[in-house]
Design a protein around this nucleic acid. Structure first.
Lengths: 170, 170
DNA sequence: GCATTTTCACCTAGGTGTCAAGTT
DNA sequence: AACTTGACACCTAGGTGAAAATGC
């Protein structure tokens, strides 16, 4: 997933163990389509059946409070898929639906062991940044988003304006 | 450092915190030179003054006992240098001297925090594999070691026999 | 008519030994 | 004469969107 979600924390207990998780939840119960002629998203009916819900623990978890204070947690390895049968642990989304990523910080006292199965059973806090809402697609619907992603992602440098042929050069 | 040191552990306490470290110590007080005509190492006098000693903590440390049980700890990022003034945290060695890598497993109870400064002050166990002794060089002294390293390291694939011109092909 | 998947060129990032040139 | 360094070609490994192929 690009751009990459990056978070940092304060107010932690040095000695405690923490797990940082990310999940992505639907924003509404709708399916969308893109209207090219007016460059905007339109509601296209009720949401499709939701794919399996997955809670993605940051692969470096658990952290000690001490470790976590010092760094920025970067979800650069998080991947999205629309394949309900995915076996790689990626987060599964419906294409053409709108989503809100969330960050969860779970605190484990000396007792707690093992993976986080259910957040409701954990001592945790959830953080939501509404500016990170997005629409899932399999192909970009809009040239502006294509340009934005190409210009901001180092791996897409080969598609930058300056390295491509313009109409004039062609 | 290639080949990469890889270790796994058993008999850990799930709840405790562990730090895995690697250091490299001189095997004797000698300097060596290579005798080409008889393809063997010869003693070439007393050791040069030792460079700064560095204890290299595995970058993923600390581990919980639970985490550490499940995985192979791989020191693939460990680097060696002969530069006494090195600022990258690499292990500093004298070229043409013989060395023994060692693995240290430090157990931290709930109290212990911070980096490992002195192993003698820690609850730890040291593991030595004498088959990992090596001679530090800046250039290989022997065509057999060159061939062995090229054949076993994926990053040196471009130098394999099959992809290079033989005398016959030339 | 779209949406989705597959293959591809083009990158980032960095680990190899070689070879020419420099140092001691 | 022995050793060391730095630029280089050649790899591994994998993240990009484009375009063609496929599916619904």
């Amino acid at each position: 997933m690009f751009p990459t979600v990056r978070v940092s924390f304060t107010g932690l207990k040095s000695e405690d163990r923490y797990i940082v998780l990310l999940d992505i939840v639907p924003i509404d119960n709708k399916r969308y389509r893109y209207a090219y002629h007016r460059s905007s998203w339109l509601v296209a009916g009720k949401a499709d059946p939701p794919p399996p819900y997955r809670l993605y623990p940051h692969p470096d978890s658990p952290y000690t409070g001490d470790q976590l204070k010092k760094q920025i947690v970067t979800f650069e390895k998080l991947k999205l898929t629309n394949n309900e049968l995915d076996k790689h642990g990626h987060i599964v989304l419906n294409s053409m639906h709108r989503y809100q990523p969330r960050i969860h910080l779970v605190r484990r006292h000396d007792s707690g062991q093992g993976p986080v199965a259910d957040l409701d059973l954990e001592d945790h806090k959830t953080f939501i940044f509404s500016e990170t809402v997005f629409t899932a697609v399999t192909a970009y619907q809009n040239q502006l988003i294509t340009k934005l992603k190409i210009d901001s992602n180092p791996f897409a440098k080969g598609f930058r304006d300056s390295s491509r042929l313009t109409d004039f050069e062609r």
